[in-house]
Design a protein around this nucleic acid. Sequence first.
DNA 1: AGCACGCCGACT
DNA 2: GTCGGCGTGCTC
Length: 831
Amino acid sequence: MPFVRVAVPVPALDALTYRVPEQLRLPSIGARVLVPLGKRVVTGLVVDHESGIDRRAPAADRPEESTVKDVLDILDSDAFLNEDVVKLATWVSEYYACGIGEAVAAAMPPRAWIESERYAQLADGVNGRVANERGLRRQILQSLISGKPARIDKLARLGGGTHAAVLTLERDGLVVLTQPLKGKADAHRTVRTVQLTAQGHDEEAVAGVFRMRPGGGAAGRRQREAIEILRGAPTGVDATDLKERGIGPQTLASLASLGLVSIGRRRVDRDPFSETANDRPRTVLAANPERQEGVLTLTAEQGQALQTLATVVQRGGFAPVLLHGVTGSGKTELYLRLSDEVRRSGRGVLVLVPEIALTPAVAGGFRRVFGERVAIQHSGLSDGERHDQWQRIRRGDVDVVVGTRSAVFAPVQRLGLIVVDEEHDSSYKQEESPRYHGRDVAVMRGRQLGAVVLLGSATPSLESYQNAQSGRYELVTLAKRVLDRPLAEVRIVDMREVYAGDGPDTILSPALRDAMHARLERGEQSIVLLNRRGFATSVFCRQCGATTECPNCSVSLTVHRAQRRARCHYCNYSAPIPKACGNCAGPYLEQMGYGTERIEAEVQTHFPTARVARVDRDTIRRRGAIATLLARFAAREIDVLVGTQMIAKGHDFPSVTLVGVVSADVGLGLADFRAAERTFQLLTQVAGRAGRGDVRGQAIVQTLHPAHYSVQHACRQDYRAFFADESRYRTAMRYPPAVALLNAVVKGRTFQRAIDDAADLVRALRRASEAYRVLGPAPAPLSRLKGEHRAQFFMKGTHRATMRRALLAVLADRPDIKRRTIVDVDPISVL
DNA sequence: AGCACGCCGACT
DNA sequence: GTCGGCGTGCTC
């Protein structure tokens, strides 16, 4: 009797074993199945076959033969998720210590396996036949008789076998199953198409019809035109295309009523490119002037690099390569050329980019080169679009997929190359379960499939550069910028001196103001960057010294002046900006600290005639808003762009000649071992933004730590020196990549409960082995978050698997604590 | 995640 | 007396 291992959409559960009853075939690995789970019926995904219960599963979690239930039905005749993606998800669940269901969910297109979102409805005209049915089938039909769709999992409660009965009812045409996507979007989108009928093809008949009509005015002419157009298109023409040629719905309606045309519907894939084409500005798509001409000549260095990479690709097999190219050295062009090589050899390409803000720019470049053979995947797409793009990829309609983190699971066929652009970027790390790192998953996928993985960055992560140094990754370097453009001149402004001279409330230093003034005079553009949004970072009472804190989290509320709210950046709690102290009721409140909103106001005050705009999470809520803003900036309708690091990434604005960094050290004072790396990366990227055109750019960096090595090395764009210093620090302090790190956060109703439970786990871990060190427990940096108290501890060691296994074993002994514990393998943010 | 079971406060 | 709060346990 065959058995299958099934991943179910329940976070805490491992794969479960089910029996495949005789009347069903053996489902493929990667196929969706309906299985009973407790009182529910859920969709699961087959992750493995098992010829007998005792064959594979280790003794501990081998289920009793009698407890194994039957698979109810098989939803896919073949794999729904490619087998290689299933294998990848399995790896993710093991490596990141999360449930297999969560890992599989990350790889699934939206709404593909949530049973509570599948609905059954009575088919048309069935009402009268209900009386013919008996038993369960009749019960089901009775409960559907109102005509309203009912959730399948609710129906399943009518009793055993309901689900199977629903499916047979569907087979018999009595019931229709639907699965609406979020909102109004249905699983498939259709457009109206128009086709000539047999009569419409018959010229005699057409002439006859028109002769009988009086006049022959404009309407008649339109109708004749339409017939002409349709004659050249035997498969029909979309109504929208006809509209563009002046033939509207009325014309079509009258033609239809004359029996000359038929109007039908055709299934189309939603295309994220065309959908946003109206507000997506040409200038951004074609921001790279060289590309507009069509073919871009490679520099000698680029040519060499391409040759090396092409050789690696031709050699075949798994090969991780780090492409270290200074900002502006033309990495994107290499991605394009290499992708083309891979595509020509009949293999697929996956390109990962850090964030939505960057996706249109890179995706646009790929779109121009590869046309229709490109799909995009990112969280900014609607469910419907994501669904369609995913199906296109799975069908093999595309050669290249461009997307953010989650696209690493895209079902690309015959994958030959995975590019991870800006591989150091922290947005590749998912900060909720499954807490995977897109780059690391990409490398594993390449290893499993025997594909080339190309990691590109101007400021590689310590992890990747060390791998390159040790020879685990091949290293390709681009040291020169294209067209020999000079790097920006970087000037450090010591804010301690500025405070001494101009007072401690200064936000924009005289040096930065003067430089901006000069740009405005010359009609050049500036970018001002601060990695913190909002107007003020806290509200402070001068009478009692209290600050206004979030009631749910242990952080102060940020003032957002435009929204007239004080807001928590962690749980999104908000309240009106306080007028009196919540602690002592005193009226003497002071707003402390500043964010981008304040900078925007400050710039406007200093330069009343300047056109100033701001880009941060608050201003780009609306879909397409960022594209619009950046387009206006590219079209030089904006003089000064203020924003968070969102604007530091990827975009290419030739007429920006000044970048100001208001506070380079946001973060340097924090107890985060990656603070220096983050600062270095941000400053280097920013300095690379200035001066992409002919004029040499300038960067002005305001800081309280002018001598810090991250600031100094970034100014000289000296990555290797930074790497050397930072490696020394990480080794001395035993931080990654010198050791592997694992973080666990225990949540609790009270803080005492949380820290006591964490202490229990720590004790057990120390008792279990000395192969690793356990640090803590301690209050988590956000000791209260969303109303829960949190305590944390760390594990450091050389062997990840040992640490993970020990932690999982300890948690298995304490299931009560386990459900309140977050495990983060290779944490990026320890804040 | 659901869903049930179970044990304590304010209501018909 | 019971309706309903959420703590705890379980899902092949």
